[in-house]
Write a protein that binds this DNA or RNA. Structure first.
Lengths: 330, 330
DNA sequence: CTGTTAGCGCCTTCAG
DNA sequence: CTGAAGGCGCTAACAG
């Protein structure tokens, strides 16, 4: 690999001059310019951003930790980040934790060892081990999706969104509503959305049978299974069901249709997340849009600010949401 | 940021010893071990993978250039790559070209300047400028999705897949078949899939009206519009339509349903790509599965091999495919 | 078992 | 306008 020294030698100047030429810092004679640019052309020299980083103590790389690469939500969030980061000359070093809590922490350390200029952590939990690890990082961090104490965070309004959506279902005349949630280790999706659901019911004097409350993982098939369990375990059937993600909702719809339910006539369904798919399933899924791209952008902007103004102010940002009323509920 | 020198000083040894301790290379006395590990513990020292890379001339980072981050196909492919790369201690530096040909080339150079150990290029075209840029790279490259000359490539069997799928439609009794394709700059999707379609028709003695052949970009709404144009411009209506991606197919189905067509009774539809969505739209979409994750894995494996065995053998790999017959066609 | 020395490729004073 | 010298943090001979 050709280096700045090779260029200097072949152009008959010192590497200092070459550096000046490349970075347009300081004067360099017309004659030197010509020589240097000719040699660079001939050799295909590309300055090592790596060596530069070591010297300048900045890498122009942002580490992004996500639970799983191949989900629509994540690709949207990362896309938003990339849009603003690329603008400022940063690149994304991707680190997937595969939903493994230990790996999540490992990845943070790995990114730190690579001396990324900052880290965006799309977190799935708020376990003390994770908080501890984040706190010990010597790099600016912003969390997305979970509100981490003393860390800049971009969070969705999970509680209010779930509550609004539930109220919408109630407004449609349903009083017996089933629920498909996820594990509580995921505070935002597992706890807050459930709480929003339950609070809306309570405020409206509705109660739930225990069989109506189901827990699943994040896949479509988990939604299918949860819906099957819900039907099985119910004393009296609900007339609507709220799933905390669109994928779970789509899975549930699948089961319900198989079991011969008329949708939404005999069973209304609502999801959350406004996935691409939601608009095209039949009936079109009522859901809530969390503006994922925007969340990615905002998190990147906050991080960039933190990197620039070495001030370590903690910034909290709550994303907006909007209800998407469609055919699966009426 | 604490460095190896700080550790050495505070532990009362030379940095060489610290290095030996960290990398478990060479002997280091029990006493020294204790001192060093105590100091490391106390300071939270994390070795700079960056400096190490400069010294060792390898970064353990793989650059991945993709046309767009937020598509299901890409996230699947990248997920596959990550699975095998992570296994070997590599991380992914993501570079999105946003479907811009110049940017695609810029990104390649940027990755090279960062001294990534290798590059995986998910290409959307085979323009001479791109081939030129790739050829000048001093880093191992493997291309995915397009067959680039003299470069290791992992390609889908676009031609055969399109042909098989078309034959399947013919077998279902259709003879008048519409087509929604994409721009020919994308050789694999734009040219090969169309060719497979046309060849299957020709071999079976079927012809197409010009109005039946439509071109669109890659979005669902583009599929809607293309289907509308197809209906408008047809002298006689086809009884089936093949779209080169699932998203286009879903868009087309949307338009057809709006226009009052009974699906698949009055119009059969088929897509390509086996997107998540395809199984859950109504009617479930007949499509072909390209094993995207697997393509990502294979490309990573080929790259790793190239990195290890400095041999620059060009390796070509053709992915398998399989037909997914579902309700949208019969 | 351990330290000294010499860079990896680059930028940045500081003197010409 | 230009070059020499020093050092970013780390590893790898080479001598002890």
């Amino acid at each position: 690999m050709v280096t700045i020294n090779d260029i200097a030698r072949r152009a008959g100047v010192s590497r200092t001059t070459v550096s000046r030429f490349i970075n347009e810092s300081g004067y360099v004679s017309e004659k030197a310019r010509e020589n240097i640019s000719r040699v660079i052309e001939a050799t295909g020299y590309v300055p090592s951003e790596q060596a530069k980083s070591l010297r300048l103590k900045r890498t122009k790389v942002i580490g992004v930790v996500i639970p799983k690469i191949s989900t629509e939500t994540m690709s949207r969030v990362v896309n938003g980040m990339d849009e603003v980061l690329q603008q400022e000359g940063y690149q994304i070093l991707l680190a997937s934790s595969s939903l493994d809590k230990e790996k999540e922490i490992e990845q943070l350390k790995l990114l730190e060892s690579r001396r990324v200029d900052g880290i965006i952590l799309v977190a799935t939990n708020r376990e003390p081990e994770l908080l501890e690890a984040v706190k010990h990082l010597s790099v600016p961090v912003v969390a997305v999706g979970q509100h981490l104490p003393d860390i800049s965070s971009v969070v969705y309004n999970d509680y209010e969104a779930a509550k609004s959506l539930t109220e919408e279902i109630l407004r449609a005349g349903h009083t017996k509503i089933g629920f498909i949630g996820v594990d509580e280790a995921d505070y935002s999706v597992g706890v807050l959305r459930k709480k929003g659901f339950l609070d809306a019911l309570k405020e409206n004097g509705c109660s739930v049978e225990s069989g109506w409350m189901q827990t699943a993982s994040f896949s479509i098939s988990a939604g299918e299974e949860a819906a099957a369990r819900l039907l099985e375990q119910s004393e009296t059937l609900p007339t609507a069901v709220l799933a905390v993600t669109d994928r779970l909702a789509v899975g549930a719809m699948q089961t319900l249709r198989k079991k011969g339910f008329d949708l939404p006539g005999e069973m209304a369904v609502a999801g959350m997340g406004a996935s691409d798919m939601s608009a095209y399933v039949t009936p079109a899924l009522t859901t809530v849009d969390y503006y994922y791209e925007e969340a990615g952008k905002v998190s990147a902007e906050i991080l960039l600010k933190a990197i620039a103004g070495h001030a370590k102010k903690v910034e909290k940002s709550q994303m907006d949401y909007r209800l998407l009323k469609r055919d699966s509920l009426r």
